[in-house]
Structures are given as C-alpha cells and as structure tokens.
Simulated scan of single mutants.
Amino acid sequence: MEFIRRLRVPPIDDTLDAALHQKIDQKTKPLGALGQLERLAFQVARIQGSMTPTLKNPYILVFAGDHGVAKSGVSAYPQDVTWQMVHNFLQGGAAINVFARQHNISMRVIDAGVNHEFEDHPQLVKGKIGPGTANFLEQPAMSEELCEKALRLGAAQVDAIAEEGCNVLGFGEMGIGNTSSASMLMSYLLDVPLEHCVGRGTGLSDEQFEHKVKLLQQAAEKYPNLKSPIDILQTFAGFEIVAMVGGILRAAQNRMLVLIDGFIATAAYLAAYKLAPAIGEYAIFCHRSMEQGHQHMLEALKADPILKMDLRLGEGTGCALAYPLLQSSLNFFNEMASFADAGVSEKS
C-alpha cells in the first residue's frame, strides 16, 4: 500500500539526551524523586528536541464508526448507540466533553463510518468511509481501497490540527462492537490466544460473554493465515480504528506527542507500531483499562501507563485525565530551581 510507505516515522535524535538528564538531575530534589514525571519530561523534551519543551493547543480526536459484527450480538448495547453517542459528544454531554472542558483541551469528532447521517456541526468532521463495516464473521470488514481511505482520513485530521499549532493529541473512539475488533487485532498482531484478548466490553453478562467468545473463535477459524498488519486491519478493524492508525502514524511523523487511551486505541497503536516501530518513542500510554486484553497488550509493549484507575470507557477519557500530569512534568522541568539557582547543597 503506497500510502503506508509514505508514513515513515523518523527516529528521535539523541543529541540532547545527556543535557536533558543533567537538567532533571540538577533540580532541587533527590535523584529520581519525581519518578514517572521525570521520565515524561525527558520523553517530551526529547521529542521536541528542546531544553524548554511546551504543550501547545492540545486536542483529542474522537473517531466513530459502526461495526457489522455488532449485529451478531457481541455487545450489550444496540448499534444505534454509536450515532446517539456521537450526538451526545456534539451536544457536550459525554464524559470526554466534561474532562476536555476541565483541562482546556480542544475536541473534534470524526464520523469515519457511522450508520447515520449527521447535521453539520462545528466540531464534527464528515469523513464517512461507508455506513459501517461488513460483518467479519461472514467476510472481511473492508476492502484494501476502503482501508487506505480510512488511513488517509486519520492522517488528514492530524495534519489539520497540526496547522493550528497543536503538538500534543489524544486519540479516542466510539463504535458499538469495537472491543471485538480490538480483540481480534490483538490476537493476530501479538500471536496470542484469543482467550487472553476478549473482555466484557460494555458490560456483558456471563451468557453474553460466552456468546461473544464463541463467535470470535469462529472468526479466528475462518481466517487462519493472516500475517501482515494491513491484512489484519482489513479483515477485523472498524473504520474508526483504521483512521486512528493513520492518525497515530502521521502524528509521530509530524513529531507530535501521541496520547494513547484504552483498549481500542491501544489496539490501533499496536497495528501502527507493527507498521512503524519508531512510533514507540512518541507515544505516551495514559491509563491501564479494566479490559484484560488491554493489560496484556501493555505488558507486551513494555508500556508503563500514567494512570491505573479501573477505567473502561474509551472516548479518549484516559488521555484527558492524564494530560494535567503531563503539564506538571513540564512545569517542574522548566520552572523548578536547580541546586545552584537555589543555593541548596547537593548530596555529597
């Protein structure tokens, strides 16, 4: 796929590494005393190649899409909830709206493939690839052409906010049935048994959960030989997930700080990582979800998430909640006195 070949991600220059570590270590504190804040400050400064890093015009992009597999009963909620929740986002009534407002984070909702026609709204991007994907229990979720369109959609949204001066963005999603897609992506991309990947999603009962596992195992038997990330995305992903893959790749290519939310967003990140491993230097994992698959994915990625708060909502909520800690990491890095500035004796 030509578009993927153009989404090469540059490795980060390590020229400033020693100076950044020295600046952190010279602050008026014991070595390492600010823990993960020190690691975050170092990572952000390294991405920006700056001794005075800043977070500018933060955004959360929420991608929405419907999934054909939802019609097979893998979710506790009907498919109409996808468009109803998009409407809720646009009215400002969802959790992500509340947290984004609280922390002065701009938000944009992208209709990547919702089975509904929305009225115009200043926060809505009408990028519909189609009215939802096909049911992957019966056929691949999308064609290669539609997969590329979704990748381009995600990249274009990142380019648009980059032009507004954004250098830090989080990725959220909405799509009934998308935990099933994420479970399949995880299983194939990490080559792990499906039982380690499937969770209760929107709150399935025991009976509903068993039904979900059975259906996804049937899907795995139907597609035994998938290996490439693009083939896996085409077979199982939703348009919103593929758009996130394109957006994550473009954000790293643009040297932006990439905030990864929960299970679905991490599955999209995993696909992007398999396509361009250098994105690992640009990504910050915001929280550890209650979904068992997310915990296994984080372990496989050797990721240390900022928050562990038993969240399992999606929408980018973990990104918005973690953002003030990122601000704190840069505030200490830029504003905290050094031993020499404060006239404080260092450890002998």
Rank of each mutant, 00 (worst) to 15 (best):
M1I: 08
M1W: 02
R5E: 15
A19G: 06
H21F: 13
H21V: 11
Q22K: 15
I24K: 00
D25V: 02
Q26P: 04
L37A: 02
G49L: 12
Y59E: 08
H67Y: 08
V69P: 05
A70Q: 06
G73A: 10
S75A: 15
W83V: 01
Q84T: 02
M85L: 15
H87C: 13
F89E: 00
N97P: 08
N97F: 05
F99N: 04
A100E: 00
R108G: 01
V109T: 09
I110N: 04
V114Y: 02
V114D: 07
N115F: 03
H116S: 04
H116A: 15
F118P: 03
D120H: 14
L124W: 07
L124K: 11
K126M: 14
K126C: 09
G127Y: 05
I129F: 01
G130P: 03
A134H: 13
F136A: 05
E138I: 10
M142Y: 09
S143W: 07
E145V: 11
R152S: 12
A156Y: 12
A156T: 13
E163F: 11
C166A: 14
F171S: 07
G172V: 09
G172L: 00
E173Y: 09
M174Q: 07
I176F: 04
T179E: 02
T179H: 09
S180G: 15
S181N: 09
S181I: 00
M184V: 08
M186V: 11
M186A: 12
S187G: 13
S187F: 03
L189F: 08
D191S: 15
V192N: 01
H196G: 06
C197P: 09
F209T: 00
H211F: 00
L216M: 10
L216P: 03
A220E: 13
L226E: 07
P229I: 05
T235W: 05
E240S: 09
I241G: 01
I241K: 01
I241S: 05
L249T: 02
N254K: 15
R255M: 08
R255E: 14
M256F: 05
V258A: 01
L259G: 04
L259I: 12
I260F: 08
G262T: 01
A265N: 04
A267Q: 02
Y269R: 05
A271C: 08
Y273A: 08
L275A: 00
A276L: 04
A276N: 10
R288H: 07
M290P: 00
H294Y: 12
H296Y: 13
A300Q: 06
D304L: 14
L307Y: 08
L311K: 04
R312D: 00
R312Y: 14
G314R: 00
G316I: 07
C319M: 12
Y323A: 04
P324A: 05
S329P: 03
L330V: 09
F332V: 15
F332W: 14
N334P: 05
N334S: 11
A342G: 13
G343V: 07
S345E: 15
E346T: 14
E346Q: 14
K347H: 13
